[in-house]
């Protein structure tokens, strides 16, 4: 796992904490688990995606595939891939 991927995951977790207003829930969510199945509501997921646009300097495509948004791992993988 590259330093970049580790850093992106850490930043996504920080953004998720901001969305939820505290770390207690986010600390229980593993990198690979489905955010929806972990209990992240749609409003929080969208807020996270918006925050990621600001934090990482990109815009989500209209036709983004659902699997990209599944987990912290998949979100981080998308950001790392964009950075080439």
């Amino acid at each position: 796992m590259s330093d970049t991927a580790v850093e992106v995951r850490r930043r996504i977790r920080e953004l998720l904490v901001d969305v939820f207003g505290g770390p207690s829930f986010v600390s229980t969510v593993h990198d690979a688990v489905s955010l929806r199945e972990a209990g992240v509501p749609s409003t929080a997921l969208v807020a996270l995606l918006v925050a990621m646009e600001d934090a990482f300097g990109f815009e989500w495509a209209d036709d983004v595939r659902p699997e990209v948004l599944r987990s912290i791992d998949s979100l981080a993988g998308h950001v790392v891939a964009l950075r080439g």
């Binding site: 509501p41 409003t43 969208v46 807020a47 995606l49 918006v50 989500w60």
Partner: peptide, 14 residues
């Protein structure tokens, strides 16, 4: 059933 406040930025996203 949706209780959350939807920001203008979120509205623009969805």
């Amino acid at each position: 059933i949706e209780p959350a406040t939807i920001t203008s930025r979120t509205a623009a996203f969805i």
